[in-house]
Simulated scan of single mutants.
Amino acid sequence: MTVFSIKNVGVFNGEAIERPTELYFQGSPGNILDNDLGTAGTIDGTNCTLIPGLIDAKIDGDASTAMLPKFATFGVTTLIDSSSGTAESSAMREASARNAAMPSYLASGSPVGSGGSDSDAFKKFPYRSIRQISTPAEAESFVATHSTGPVRSDFIKVIAEDPGLDDDTLVALVEAAHRRGMLAVAHASQTSAYRRVMEAGFDVVTPAPITGALDSDVVRGFAEKKIAVIPTLYFLRHIMRMGKIDEHNFSFAVDAVRILHQAGVPICAGTSANDEEGFTVGFGDALHEELKLLVEAGLSNKEVLQAATSVPSEVFRLHDRGTLKPGTRADLVLVEGNPLEDIAASLRIVKVWIHGVEVGNGEQSEGEDNGE
């Protein structure tokens, strides 16, 4: 076992920054360790903070395998794709698995929807393909097909805009997913769709609503059911500036994030990062912009870091990451400064490791021996 240490560093423990301290981790592939088992290399973390690898909870990777190292460079070590088609997602999985220094990749495969009546979603959001169904029986078949075998999805994604799939079909999709231990993620940008998502029992919804203010009973229902929200504020601001929605729509989204957060609804950071012409949002850098917007929407710096680490790991059941506890993956980001004082410090990246592999090396880190 090859062990490395980062010394004299502030470590974000999920609630505060412990400093100065020392963290040990195993190299390629490797986890965080609770003690020194004989280090092969030491990295000096003076004036730096160590945070868990960031999780982008909403991307649209298509089959753009070249985006993987871009995300990694920006400290994004786990990608959750709920927009790309099934074939494209398979290609991305293979590319991620081939190189230990690339981000982990999870995906829903092709989202499911009614195809015709919810076509307005295509005008504002870059869904490349939607699997069309119309009945509860077809919902059951869709989930069964995507729960096993070569086209298995990590979770299901449903277009829940109104009008669209009827309530019985939405419920059938959620119940079929839950019977198979899968999460049900909804696309809902309307306040009316948020109510339908709540009533159907979805686990996650994206983006933040843009058509009006949420009713108090819907906010309360989201909090009671712990339905997580991925606001994608950076993407919404981007399409606002492109004229696809107006400033009033965007203000509804920001207000919704503030109200949902105050009510205790889990908030996950996600970007809808994509390279679709007319919708393009950068791979990796956009997540850091999303963090700033979440601060503006009322989250503290600590809560914003949680939204990009421990909260999505909990929501998406990725219990091997999202924290810096011994035994979890050595997905690590070393940044200059203190992101609890200045969230922009998240972008002042010194080094990144994915499962103990230093990004940029392509192989196990050799550390930086300072003679101590």
Rank of each mutant, 00 (worst) to 15 (best):
residue 160 A to G: 07
residue 341 E to I: 01
residue 148 T to I: 11
residue 7 K to Q: 13
residue 120 D to K: 14
residue 147 S to M: 05
residue 239 I to S: 10
residue 195 R to K: 13
residue 67 M to N: 07
residue 297 A to F: 07
residue 60 D to F: 13
residue 215 D to A: 10
residue 125 F to K: 05
residue 105 Y to H: 10
residue 359 V to S: 06
residue 116 G to D: 15
residue 263 A to Y: 06
residue 272 S to W: 05
residue 289 E to N: 11
residue 305 L to Q: 12
residue 20 P to T: 00
residue 269 A to F: 10
residue 152 R to M: 13
residue 341 E to D: 13
residue 203 D to F: 04
residue 170 L to W: 09
residue 242 M to N: 12
residue 70 K to F: 08
residue 200 A to L: 09
residue 154 D to A: 07
residue 17 I to M: 01
residue 246 D to M: 04
residue 37 L to D: 10
residue 239 I to W: 09
residue 161 E to R: 10
residue 227 I to P: 01
residue 79 L to H: 00
residue 62 D to F: 10
residue 371 G to S: 04
residue 84 S to W: 02
residue 164 G to I: 13
residue 193 A to G: 14
residue 352 V to Q: 02
residue 52 P to M: 08
residue 266 P to V: 06
residue 282 G to W: 03
residue 123 K to P: 05
residue 114 S to T: 13
residue 179 R to K: 15
residue 89 S to A: 14
residue 163 P to T: 08
residue 177 A to Q: 12
residue 86 T to M: 14
residue 293 L to N: 03
residue 158 V to T: 12
residue 314 E to C: 05
residue 160 A to E: 04
residue 182 M to K: 11
residue 356 G to F: 02
residue 81 D to S: 02
residue 292 K to I: 11
residue 177 A to P: 11
residue 81 D to G: 02
residue 159 I to N: 15
residue 257 V to P: 01
residue 276 E to N: 11
residue 72 A to R: 01
residue 111 P to F: 05
residue 73 T to K: 14
residue 218 V to Q: 01
residue 88 E to A: 14
residue 342 D to P: 05
residue 313 S to W: 06
residue 51 I to D: 07
residue 32 I to M: 06
residue 147 S to Y: 06
residue 81 D to V: 08
residue 6 I to E: 11
residue 325 K to D: 15
residue 97 A to N: 14
residue 196 R to F: 05
residue 350 V to I: 07
residue 260 L to I: 03
residue 153 S to H: 12
residue 161 E to N: 11
residue 197 V to D: 04
residue 358 E to F: 00
residue 94 E to T: 12
residue 248 H to K: 11
residue 173 L to M: 15
residue 351 K to Y: 09
residue 17 I to S: 02
residue 199 E to S: 09
residue 272 S to N: 14
residue 55 I to F: 04
residue 188 A to V: 07
residue 168 D to V: 00
residue 312 P to D: 07
residue 366 E to Q: 12
residue 75 G to A: 03
residue 213 A to T: 14
residue 96 S to D: 06
residue 294 L to R: 09
residue 152 R to K: 15
residue 38 G to F: 08
residue 365 S to H: 05
residue 89 S to G: 15
residue 114 S to F: 15
residue 255 D to W: 04
residue 106 L to M: 11
residue 150 P to N: 06
residue 258 R to D: 13
residue 350 V to D: 11
residue 223 A to Q: 08
residue 268 C to H: 00
residue 346 S to C: 15
residue 261 H to V: 06
residue 166 D to W: 01
residue 77 T to D: 04
residue 214 L to K: 03
residue 25 F to R: 04
residue 209 P to M: 03
residue 54 L to V: 03
residue 31 N to Q: 12
residue 269 A to P: 09
residue 196 R to A: 13
residue 64 S to K: 13
residue 91 A to R: 14
residue 165 L to G: 04
residue 138 E to R: 00
residue 205 V to K: 02
residue 249 N to Q: 05
residue 128 R to I: 12
residue 244 K to L: 15
residue 247 E to T: 11
residue 319 H to F: 08
residue 231 P to I: 02
residue 164 G to K: 10
residue 244 K to S: 08
residue 61 G to Y: 09
residue 87 A to H: 13
